[in-house]
Amino acid sequence: MVMFSVSHGELFRNGESIRISTNFLPSRHAPDHGVDLTYIPHHHDFFELVVILDGEGFHHIGETAHSVFRGDVFIIPPSVPHHFQASHLRLVNVMFRGNVLEPYEHELRQLPGFTALFTLEPRERLEGRRKGHLKLSGSRLEEVERLIHHLIREENSRAPGHSIMAAGLFFQLLTVLAREYQRLSTPEAHRILTISSVISALESQYPRRWTIKELCVRANLSPSTLRRHFIRAVGMPPLRYLAYLRVEKACELLTQTDLTMLEIAEKVGFQDSNYFARQFRRYKGLSPREFRRITRRGVSTRAP
């Protein structure tokens, strides 16, 4: 099977970070169309927010296929192979680069519904589970449709200040969807939101000296159950994920500031620079000093 790849450079114009389109399936585009690959297996290096407005069909993602219906909402992360199959399907794709979230990412990460929708539910979907997905109906779907249509109008108008208006509508849309996810009452959604609340707490208060007991109280779960659900959600236990978060934050400080190793260690939550160095090497494969030297030369480094 031919797999097409789409980069943000092919899609976003003039440095923009948000692009939105309405698609109807079956598509009228030829298979070799450069950008609109809705019904052709492809992947891309940006995020895609999908809202199903009408009809029904199948969404193939990775090695699995899920039925989709009016009101379904889900996120497709970068580098995930996917395509749609349907005889009648109307959907909206809001495509955006990860950096567009930066102005309000800290606030968004404090919403368990955001973490659930953007981080945990996509992983569940990719692994063949979808009972915890977001589905809108009635006035909720109408509200989201109105926001989307306003966003499309601003993007198409090219009027002065249209990018500011589009960004405002985009963040409003994300917040509405995060709140809606938090209203879900299915057992799977409840499980995802429970873990999301722990992740949100760790991400917003990563320097704090968290204990497993505190996290279990927050989640109302036993240590073994919390560990099992957490590993299923993010691939590692809670306190290891906390160390990972601290290392990621340390990377920013190493690159953007002249703080000493001890100052950075204390700022991100490590109690001494030696322990900080060991944890940093565990996740990045090199010492903090080496990381600073390499990144300041303009050479990127990636976690092993």
Rank of each mutant, 00 (worst) to 15 (best):
E290N: 02
D54F: 00
P237F: 05
L254M: 12
E127T: 14
G57C: 12
F84Q: 11
R208F: 15
S204T: 13
A116H: 01
S204W: 00
L49T: 08
R146D: 00
L53R: 15
L259A: 10
L239N: 05
L11V: 15
T38I: 11
K135C: 00
Y104A: 07
H60I: 12
N23I: 07
F58R: 13
R153F: 11
I195W: 01
R28T: 14
I152F: 09
H66A: 08
L136T: 03
F46E: 00
E56S: 12
Y206L: 05
T38E: 04
R129Q: 06
Y283D: 07
F118Q: 05
R232W: 12
F291S: 10
E16D: 14
Q182L: 11
S7Q: 06
H133M: 06
P187I: 07
E102M: 06
I264C: 08
V94W: 10
E16F: 01
H66N: 08
D72M: 11
E263P: 13
E290R: 07
T22R: 07
L193T: 03
P77C: 08
R13N: 12
R146N: 04
D45A: 10
L108S: 08
H82A: 14
F96V: 08
L53M: 13
T115N: 15
R232I: 02
T260W: 07
F230E: 01
F46W: 03
S139H: 03
Q205G: 10
L108E: 11
L173D: 04
S79G: 02
L221Q: 00
L286W: 01
G113F: 04
L242S: 05
G71M: 01
L126A: 02
D45Q: 13
G113E: 06
K267G: 06
Y104S: 06
V247K: 03
D258K: 11
S300N: 12
K213C: 05
L134W: 00
A167G: 04
A116T: 06
E214T: 12
Q205N: 15
R129E: 06
I75G: 04
L91F: 10
F291D: 03
G285E: 00
L117K: 08
M1W: 02
T175W: 08
R130V: 13
R293S: 15
R278A: 15
A65G: 09
E263C: 02
V80M: 09
N156A: 11
V268P: 13
H42S: 09
N220G: 10
L101A: 07
I195L: 14
E252Q: 09
R218N: 02
I40L: 07
N156D: 12
L89F: 11
S163M: 07
Q205T: 14
F74C: 03
L25Q: 05
G98R: 07
F58W: 14
N274S: 12
I231C: 01
R228T: 10
V198L: 12
H150E: 13
P187F: 05
N156L: 13
S273R: 14
R292V: 01
T22N: 06
G269A: 01
L221H: 00
F276E: 04
A167K: 14
K249G: 03
